[in-house]
């Protein structure tokens, strides 16, 4: 649905986006991660035909961003970094203008669609209030309504949950899930909330200083950072007999005891093979197991580590 090839954008002395290539499939939620200034917004702006690339090309929904910008614009919905709403107009006037601009012809059709979406966010009652009186979160929701009002097959969402309360963030996450799962819309999601990326994205791309550092599923990403899985085993009591028994096994690469909690952390080669072995060893050494947990580094840890490595280079 989206294909980019060596996409590059320079501003005078800086290269905001440097040779980015990726493909996004239909119905996929693709995550765009990276610190401030990484070039996420600039990439989205190029894909939405808002600024032209310095080099490289891309196709969106089958149309080339250089030769067919109007067709691209018709096929996408975009949530920009700023809500970009007319503060002197009411919520309804804003939505009605954009719905018409995106080609919804009759005012009945527009009203029906706008009502459906404003109802979803509980904003229909506020439709006749000026946007200037709206809270940040309400503006954000309104901007999302604008992005999807014309049912575009491709959506670009630039930090949709930034600065929202947890409840609103969840509403928006649920909406994104519904859009991709049930309506098969393709979503490019820029986010700082790794939780969002983890819950929604099949694949993510991590960017820093305009370059792509890594592309893959959240799981692949974690494995790349920390290839050794860690087992956390909670016992009623950590005895030296149990500890020594584990240390003597060659699959246990590293053994740590978390003092206060009676937990042993064991690094292993392959969790699927080694977990049963460890459990047997502990039981044979008279240990009483309360729980066994396979630990993976959180996406956040993986992300922070990658960015840090990028900075050191």
């Amino acid at each position: 649905m989206i294909e980019t090839k060596n996409l590059t954008r320079k501003f005078r002395n800086i290269t905001a986006v440097d040779n980015i290539s990726f493909n996004i499939e239909k119905g996929e939620v693709f995550g765009f991660l990276g610190p401030n200034g990484a070039g996420k917004t600039t990439t989205i702006r190029m894909l939405a035909c808002l600024i032209s690339p310095t080099e490289g090309t891309a196709t969106v929904a089958g149309y080339d961003i250089r030769s067919d910008p109007t067709k691209v614009r018709e096929s996408i919905g975009i949530l920009t970094e700023n809500p970009s709403l007319y503060e002197r107009l009411t919520a309804y006037e804003n939505m009605d203008f954009f719905a018409a601009a995106y080609g919804i012809k009759t005012s009945d059709e527009r009203q029906q669609r706008i009502r459906e979406l404003l109802d979803f966010f509980n904003l229909w009652d506020r439709r006749n209030d000026k946007v200037a009186t709206f809270s940040k979160g309400m503006k954000q929701k309104l901007a999302i309504v604008r992005a999807i009002v014309h049912r575009p097959p491709v959506l670009f969402l630039d930090e949709p949950t930034a600065g929202l309360d947890p409840e609103s963030a969840k509403e928006i996450r649920d909406l994104m899930f519904q859009l991709s799962q049930h309506e098969k819309r393709t979503i490019l999601l820029c986010t700082h909330h790794l939780e969002d990326a983890e819950k929604l994205c099949k694949r993510v791309l991590i960017m820093n200083k305009g370059r792509c550092i890594l592309t893959g599923s959240p799981n692949e990403l974690r494995d790349k950072i920390n290839p050794q899985p860690v087992l956390e085993i909670e016992l009623t009591k950590v005895s030296s007999i149990v500890l020594n028994a584990i240390k003597n096994e060659n699959y246990a690469k590293e053994v740590k005891v978390l003092d206060q909690e009676n937990i042993i952390a064991v690094s292993v080669g392959d969790a699927r093979v080694d977990t049963p072995k460890i459990v047997r060893t502990i039981v044979e050494a008279q240990g009483q197991i309360l729980s066994v947990k396979l630990l993976r580094p959180s996406l956040e840890e993986a992300y922070l580590k990658l960015i840090k490595e990028g900075k050191q280079q």
């Binding site: 035909c49 018709e74 975009i78 920009t80 954009f98 601009a101």
Partner: peptide, 8 residues
């Protein structure tokens, strides 16, 4: 202007 320029 950004949202306006994004329209077709």
């Amino acid at each position: 202007i950004e949202a306006l320029l994004a329209t077709p």
